[in-house]
Design a protein around this nucleic acid. Structure first.
Lengths: 209, 209
DNA sequence: GTCTATAGAAGGATAGAC
DNA sequence: GTCTATCCTTCTATAGAC
């Protein structure tokens, strides 16, 4: 309190600890849990293994810390759902575009894949991923759709189910292939997928009138 | 030729080899590549490691053989798409029901997860999974939809894209959660998802008339 | 083909000096 | 907190007898 005026959020953040987290994060994401050795992490962080074990009790704990943190920070993409925009199609197109590009991009895809890979050994990571990523978006989108229904701009249906369906339409095709390591969709394909998702969704959920 | 009348398909299939494949298949699916040791496989197969290495040149080769084989056989669920049934909704409901239950069931889900997990180390497995599973279904469904369009029972659109969308609607919600190790959807939720997928799809793709 | 026994390397984790 | 050096286990893979 009396030493510094700098707003230190994590006073436990030594530089070495930061280096370890950075190196381990990269290696775990790229190679997975099993194929990444503690030796390799220490080497990449320019740190001895003893130092690593002074900061983290085990390889498992280090992995869990990193992935959990990555879920909390890297998945928290800003969700753009302007309440007052009456153009439902435009809002969905913008959201779909951002969301699809985000989950196809390197980091989010790497997190997704490593979490699926280790969901058996680290069940809590599956939950952390869901709650910070897809679940959060589903929640926000569902609430938005409910309000659009109340405003008469969407047909009245189960909002949670409708949100799931719109997100499912976005993921259709390209995302499954990308998680399997196959070539990701091109820019043009992404645009086409988003447009098609919005079209299909609105054909099905436009207000009856 | 002169010894036996039994129709032997694979004469290279010794009983030990079969035991090894069975044991390794179970362990790899359950624990993944890294967490499964050759020792454990040999023990479970009641075979020595030397015998295992007499049949397979390496752990990697054994893994690749097993997963590739699993993709070819276990993913080849029969695709029921009766050409002559004019009731499009019924066909889609039947297909959706089978498909969704299949990809949520233990074995298919285990294969999916282990392939995603090791897609970096074994890129060819990602392709094998796609081509024998989702890709095959997409292909069949796309062709069926094309013919339904020709018969005037569906609106004329890009059939491949429509197939992707229907499959995306089916996967929406439950499947993503299941791959993350979260509780799979209940029977009732599966039914609801299938019904909702068919409803949304037909609302969007019914013939204009 | 199949076994027992073991080589040889790499894994995670720690002791002890500073 | 950080290092060097090392411990013990486990790993993949093989040699050699049968």
């Amino acid at each position: 309190m009396t030493e510094s005026t700098a707003p230190v959020l994590h006073e436990t953040e030594s530089p070495k600890r930061h280096d370890i987290l950075a190196a381990a994060g990269m290696l775990f994401m790229q190679l997975g849990y099993g194929a990444t050795s503690v030796d390799a992490i220490a080497r990449a962080a320019l740190v001895s293994k003893a130092t690593l074990y002074a900061h983290f009790p085990s390889k498992e704990a280090l992995f869990a810390t990193i992935i959990d943190d990555a879920c909390r920070t890297s998945l928290a993409a800003p969700i753009l759902l302007p309440e007052d925009d009456p153009d439902v199609a435009r809002v969905l197109r913008t959201l779909g575009d951002q969301m699809l590009r985000f989950i196809l991009e390197g980091r989010a895809l790497a997190i997704h894949r490593v979490v699926i890979a280790e969901a058996a050994r680290f069940p809590e990571l599956g939950r952390a991923f869901w709650e910070n990523g897809p679940g959060r978006l589903r929640q926000a989108l569902s609430a938005w759709m409910q309000r659009q229904q109340d405003a008469g701009r969407l047909r009245r249906v189960d909002a949670g189910l409708a949100a799931d369906q719109f997100l499912g339409l976005l993921r259709s095709g390209g995302h499954v292939r990308a998680t399997l390591g196959l070539p990701p969709p091109t820019e043009a394909e992404i645009d086409r997928t988003v447009q098609a998702a919005v079209d299909t969704f609105l054909r099905a959920f436009a207000p009856t009138g």
